Amino acid sequence: MTEYKLVVVGAGGVGKSALTIQLIQNHFVDEYDPTIEDSYRKQVVIDGETCLLDILDTAGQEEYSAMRDQYMRTGEGFLCVFAINNTKSFEDIHHYREQIKRVKDSEDVPMVLVGNKCDLPSRTVDTKQAQDLARSYGIPFIETSAKTRQGVDDAFYTLVREIRKHKEKMSKDGKKKKKKSKTKCVIM
């Protein structure tokens, strides 16, 4: 069974824990209790493949930012979460993405942009803004509501699919490099 290491990042209060708990335990946590770091595991079937999701729910508070490099190193894919009623959390996505790329030393890291709290009427981040940002990053965008469960499975499952595509691409690139290195030079 394939294991996928997913990391949920975003500013404090955007609903990272609520999304994760909704996926794992099928219930909505409405009281806000700032996370330092929590880890969850769940076995699911995605596109006919049974897999184990190892999900790291991270601290959004700035005082825990020193811990970010460590979990970013171990993560295979990242859910970059903002709240649709919090423009600052949307603007912060850029910083999370840049930090992930720096730590992973790669421009090509599996990510999904997630606009959470889409059940709320007080939207300050337009869907088109988020779609445009995701398009500019070359990553999928999904709106979710941890409260109603809308888009929750889709967000995590899409990230797994992005990781699969990335692994497939990397193995193809690896095979191309191996083929090239088999060419021999004969000096007579």
Rank of each mutant, 00 (worst) to 15 (best):
98 E>C: 04
172 K>N: 08
136 S>V: 09
120 L>W: 10
114 V>M: 09
63 E>V: 03
32 Y>W: 10
39 S>T: 15
52 L>H: 09
49 E>V: 08
62 E>W: 06
132 D>M: 05
155 A>T: 11
39 S>P: 00
71 Y>G: 15
136 S>P: 14
55 I>E: 00
67 M>D: 13
126 D>T: 06
70 Q>P: 12
175 K>H: 11
166 H>G: 10
177 K>A: 10
58 T>F: 02
66 A>T: 11
145 S>W: 04
174 G>C: 09
142 I>K: 12
155 A>S: 11
104 K>P: 04
115 G>C: 12
48 G>R: 09
135 R>Q: 10
62 E>D: 09
47 D>L: 05
55 I>W: 01
47 D>A: 07
127 T>N: 08
145 S>E: 15
61 Q>G: 12
115 G>K: 03
19 L>T: 14
84 I>T: 13
80 C>Q: 05
180 K>T: 15
99 Q>L: 14
151 G>Y: 15
72 M>S: 07
12 G>Y: 08
116 N>V: 15
70 Q>I: 04
61 Q>Y: 07
68 R>L: 12
49 E>I: 04
142 I>A: 13
58 T>M: 06
2 T>N: 13
82 F>K: 00
119 D>L: 12
122 S>L: 06
77 G>D: 00
149 R>W: 04
128 K>L: 05
8 V>D: 02
187 I>G: 14
24 I>R: 02
124 T>Y: 07
69 D>P: 03
116 N>K: 00
139 I>A: 04
149 R>D: 15
80 C>W: 03
160 V>N: 07
164 R>M: 09
9 V>G: 03
169 K>Q: 14
63 E>L: 02
21 I>K: 01
54 D>W: 02
58 T>I: 03
115 G>R: 04
154 D>A: 06
71 Y>H: 15
182 K>V: 06
41 R>Y: 02
148 T>Y: 06
120 L>E: 09
50 T>D: 09
68 R>E: 15
62 E>Q: 10
150 Q>T: 04
120 L>M: 09
52 L>P: 13
39 S>C: 09
152 V>Y: 13
61 Q>M: 07
60 G>E: 01
54 D>R: 01
168 E>T: 03
150 Q>V: 03
41 R>T: 09
142 I>N: 03
130 A>F: 14
23 L>E: 15
104 K>W: 14
154 D>F: 05
96 Y>H: 06
42 K>C: 08
42 K>P: 06
78 F>P: 00
172 K>A: 07
186 V>W: 06
110 P>K: 02
165 K>M: 07
62 E>V: 04
120 L>Q: 06
7 V>E: 02
88 K>F: 15
64 Y>E: 14
86 N>W: 01
72 M>A: 06
142 I>D: 02
17 S>V: 00
116 N>C: 15
38 D>S: 00
149 R>F: 11
152 V>E: 13
102 R>V: 04
11 A>N: 10
105 D>K: 13
164 R>L: 08
175 K>N: 06
49 E>G: 08
80 C>H: 09
11 A>H: 08
118 C>W: 06
91 E>C: 04
129 Q>W: 11
114 V>W: 01
175 K>I: 12
74 T>Y: 09
108 D>W: 03
168 E>Q: 03
121 P>E: 13
86 N>Q: 08
28 F>T: 01
51 C>T: 07
80 C>K: 01
96 Y>E: 08
42 K>W: 04
123 R>L: 08
32 Y>K: 00
89 S>D: 14
176 K>L: 12
170 M>D: 13
182 K>M: 04
3 E>K: 04
128 K>E: 06
81 V>C: 07
143 E>V: 03
2 T>Y: 14
122 S>Q: 11
181 S>E: 12
87 T>C: 03
28 F>I: 01
34 P>V: 02
39 S>Q: 09
25 Q>E: 01
150 Q>H: 03
187 I>K: 12
39 S>K: 03
36 I>H: 02
26 N>F: 05
38 D>A: 00
37 E>D: 14
176 K>E: 13
42 K>E: 06
95 H>I: 03
79 L>H: 01
28 F>R: 01
19 L>Q: 15
73 R>Q: 10
82 F>L: 06
65 S>Q: 09
20 T>G: 03
136 S>N: 07
162 E>A: 07
43 Q>V: 08
150 Q>G: 09
82 F>P: 00
187 I>Y: 14
48 G>S: 10
100 I>R: 02
146 A>V: 09
172 K>G: 04
157 Y>H: 12
175 K>Y: 07
142 I>W: 12
137 Y>S: 11
145 S>C: 10
155 A>L: 12
116 N>P: 00
83 A>I: 03
108 D>F: 06
20 T>W: 00
18 A>G: 09
123 R>C: 10
71 Y>P: 11
19 L>K: 14
29 V>A: 05
41 R>D: 00
63 E>R: 05
60 G>V: 01
48 G>L: 04
119 D>Q: 14
40 Y>G: 00
53 L>H: 02
33 D>K: 00
107 E>K: 10
178 K>Q: 12
56 L>D: 15
166 H>E: 05
127 T>A: 05
138 G>R: 15
43 Q>N: 11
121 P>Q: 09
71 Y>R: 02
53 L>Y: 11
102 R>S: 06
2 T>A: 11
103 V>L: 14
177 K>G: 10
16 K>R: 00
155 A>N: 02
105 D>Q: 06
46 I>E: 14
13 G>L: 07
58 T>E: 01
47 D>P: 06
139 I>G: 10
14 V>S: 10
18 A>Y: 00
94 H>Q: 14
60 G>K: 01
25 Q>K: 03
27 H>P: 00
47 D>I: 01
81 V>E: 12
73 R>I: 08
69 D>Y: 04
16 K>G: 02
25 Q>G: 15
32 Y>M: 13
6 L>Y: 07
89 S>G: 09
131 Q>E: 10
126 D>F: 05
25 Q>L: 07
25 Q>Y: 11
38 D>F: 00
26 N>I: 02
77 G>P: 01
68 R>T: 15
136 S>A: 12
9 V>Y: 09
78 F>H: 05
55 I>T: 08
40 Y>R: 00
27 H>V: 11
77 G>K: 12
30 D>A: 10
58 T>L: 05
17 S>G: 00
25 Q>C: 15
84 I>K: 13
156 F>D: 02
76 E>R: 03
27 H>L: 15
128 K>C: 06
9 V>C: 04
146 A>S: 08
12 G>K: 11
139 I>Y: 12
33 D>E: 06
41 R>F: 02
118 C>L: 07
162 E>K: 10
107 E>F: 08
90 F>M: 12
69 D>A: 03
165 K>G: 11
97 R>L: 15
111 M>W: 07
121 P>T: 09
43 Q>W: 02
109 V>C: 08
172 K>E: 03
175 K>F: 14
94 H>L: 14
76 E>T: 12
155 A>M: 15
97 R>F: 15
73 R>T: 10
160 V>F: 06
34 P>K: 04
144 T>I: 15
157 Y>V: 11
59 A>G: 09
71 Y>V: 10
49 E>S: 11
76 E>A: 07
29 V>H: 06
3 E>L: 08
167 K>P: 04
170 M>Y: 15
164 R>S: 05
37 E>I: 01
124 T>K: 09
60 G>M: 01
131 Q>T: 12
162 E>M: 09
153 D>M: 09
175 K>E: 14
70 Q>N: 06
45 V>Y: 04
115 G>T: 11
161 R>L: 04
158 T>C: 10
128 K>F: 05
57 D>A: 00
